[in-house]
Amino acid sequence: MAKRKTKRTTNPEHPRLPVLKTYKMFVGGKFPRTESGRHYTPRVKGRGLGNFCLASRKDLRNAVVAARAAQASWAERSAYNRSQILYRIAEMLEGRRGQLIDELEIQGATEGQAASEVDQSIERVVYYAGWCDKYQQVFSSVNPVASPHFNFSVLEPTGVVFHVASENRPLLGLLSLVLPILAGGNTVVCLASSTRPISAITLSECLATSDVPAGVVNVLTGQLAELSAHFAGHREINAIALDRPPRSKNSIAQSIRETAADSLKRVHVYNLNWARGENQNPYLIRDFCEVKTVWHPVEQISSSGPGY
């Protein structure tokens, strides 16, 4: 692992041997190693970041099992409670601000860029925490129909979402999609940035201590090319959020779309600059919701006209 900036040394004559961290994944509220036993070592400017789990398709399957098990109860929580839980993530991130900045610098950002990314990330959590109990009012509707019925359209979560996180914005990019996915009542399996995976793991540690129920967020580290056919085909996954620039030559998005079509998955491909304020918006919540329309007969319960 790359060396952190040390703030103070207790005894300069006898420097401590630093305790190195084993980077593990985050699945079902626990921190397992990959079942495959494989690792890889991403490098930034020639310097190794550490050994990270190289997730296998079985790790993917286990994460989906955890996400599916957690989905119904996450969606059933009151919107207000989801909001509180998301806000708690911001509290946890705030306490780790220094560590998050250090780690972004180790992964290649300048001090200024790192601080700005962490601050924006924390603010983004608060932003989506606020939206949890509001998007339903904005996007739902009462529809005019030509018969004595109430006709409502309301949003329901899509289900289990697989999220391929941004390669270049390891913290802000990951949160910018995970948060709207969670706000809408979905659970998520994230594939962290393969070249800069440290921040996703530290974020997992924040999530594990922030009242987010086990399995609601799961974080894998590994290679997109190895896993893409498996998550695209996995029938228990209901939607895919692919945070990748569209490339004409390498058509991984295209092959994911084709495989995903077999199981009627939603596939959203994003190529947004997450640092820009306009790219945090409630429409991202709607991307991972389905519209349910219900008809309800209007009953005559008073003499003066239709009513409740």
């Binding site: 399957r61 989906v64 599916r68 498996h230 085909g233 996995h234 029938r235 228990e236 077999d262 199981s263």
Partner: peptide, 9 residues
């Protein structure tokens, strides 16, 4: 099939 099925399958 090569694909993990869903509970609904």
């Amino acid at each position: 099939t090569g694909y993990y099925p869903a509970a609904d399958d």
